[in-house]
Amino acid sequence: MIPHLAITDQPIDIAAALAAVQTDTAGAVNSFIGTVRNQSGGRPVRRLHYESYDSMALTQLGHVIAQAYEKWPMLQEVAVVHRKGTLELGDVAVVVAVATPHRAESFAACQFIIDTLKQVVTIWKREEYEDGTEWVAAHP
């Protein structure tokens, strides 16, 4: 039941994150894998730079997962691994994996965790274009 949480500057091992949530009491493992795509709002993106306030990010991630356990008491295991540093196109930026007894809750809990992570976890993304860079969502 102790969630597997990490913010790393190393490539994310998807299989390890899935293995971390495997448990004989769960019949469903659901995962979300966020990857680096080649455009943003139609503007070509060359690579991404992620910055993290690690201690706060892990604290807030802990709160998100506690909320998920409140909403879905049957939630068994959770793993969240977020990458930081420079990422190239196609690289894995984040993996969320959850294990629940049945599949419906696994989809819902996984979506809740990634959606809420994006709102509160202290990680910032700078997109690199051919002609410069920009912090995502910084300005209205």
């Binding site: 306030y53 201690s55 930026a93 990634i114 992570l117 994006k118 976890v121 990680i123 995502v136 969502a137």
Partner: peptide, 12 residues
């Protein structure tokens, strides 16, 4: 206190 400014986050 450990104090920080938190601009709009953009993880995921």
């Amino acid at each position: 206190d450990e104090i920080a400014l938190i601009p709009p986050v953009a993880g995921g």
